[in-house]
Computed example of a mutant assay.
Amino acid sequence: MDRLIHGLIEQYGLLAVFLGCLAEGETAALLGGFFAHQRLFAPWQSVLAAFCGAALGDTAFFLLGRRYAQHPWVARLRTRPGFDRADRLLRQHPNLFVLSNRYIYGMRLVGGVAAGLAEIPLWRFVLLNATSALAWALLFTALGYGFGLGAEQVLGRALHAHQRLWLALGLALAMALVAAGLRRRRRRHAGH
């Protein structure tokens, strides 16, 4: 079973990083860095997959807001917690918002749509978004790589492939629990 999982990660891991980074993808980028440290693929490949997913995902959300402002899905996004805040920040500091949007948990999806609804030219959004996506991909891939390096230092170099897989699964589970906790907390605060 461990060999099967290891083979699937080698074969489809970069695709999974790309797909995971299309939306809120910190966990996918971290795992890409971790598996790059485990030499399942090169670090630059992890960064590239995370960058492409993040840049294309945010551009798609921007285009949704720009082209389909009246669509029910976009209208539903406008009612989500944080949309009004994103819209306000975007109108006050459009360039800074596009550069920093992906670093504010829970704002990436609504922020991309809000940017599409604003008066930001497409070329400016793409340029600022690509700059931000590259920095983001480098940061989170490096953090995942560092986690792999730290695990190796703490647990020793003798980690077997199956132990690495379980360690990565633990990292993904921890990130999912943190994300769920933050989401619950945000909903509680939004209800008050």
Rank of each mutant, 00 (worst) to 15 (best):
L14C: 03
A176P: 00
T141C: 10
A151K: 01
L134Y: 07
L177V: 11
F140I: 05
F51P: 05
L182N: 08
G116S: 05
L171F: 10
A28H: 05
R164C: 10
A75H: 09
L56P: 01
L143I: 13
I120T: 14
N95H: 13
R88F: 10
I104H: 00
F97L: 08
P81K: 00
L22D: 03
C52Y: 00
Y103I: 07
L171Y: 01
A133T: 08
G146L: 15
P94W: 07
G146H: 02
T27L: 06
R3V: 08
G33D: 05
L19M: 13
V113A: 03
F18Q: 09
L143T: 03
I120M: 15
A23W: 02
F140P: 07
G25S: 11
T27G: 01
E119W: 02
F147V: 15
V154A: 14
S46G: 15
E24P: 01
G148S: 10
A133K: 05
A179S: 12
G181V: 07
G112H: 06
H160I: 09
A60C: 09
A168G: 12
G82M: 02
W136S: 04
L173F: 14
A168W: 06
R157V: 07
Q45N: 06
R3G: 11
L182M: 13
A172D: 02
A50S: 13
D58Y: 02
G53H: 03
Q70A: 14
I120D: 07
P94C: 10
R187W: 02
I104W: 01
D87M: 12
G65Q: 04
Y103F: 15
A151H: 02
R67D: 00
R185P: 00
A69E: 10
A168Q: 05
F140W: 14
F83Y: 15
L177I: 07
V47A: 10
A142H: 02
W44M: 09
L165R: 05
I120C: 09
L89K: 09
P94G: 08
E24A: 13
R102I: 05
G65L: 06
L177T: 03
A174I: 14
F61G: 04
V110N: 04
D87W: 14
T79G: 11
M1F: 11
V110R: 02
A130V: 05
G25Y: 09
V74Q: 02
A158D: 15
A158I: 04
Q163N: 03
G53E: 03
A36E: 03
L19T: 08
A23C: 12
L14K: 02
A54N: 12
T79L: 15
W123F: 12
A176H: 06
G181T: 08
W166A: 13
D84V: 12
W136V: 06
S132A: 15
V17P: 04
N101A: 15
F41D: 02
R85A: 14
L127P: 00
V47M: 14
A133I: 04
A55S: 07
L177K: 03
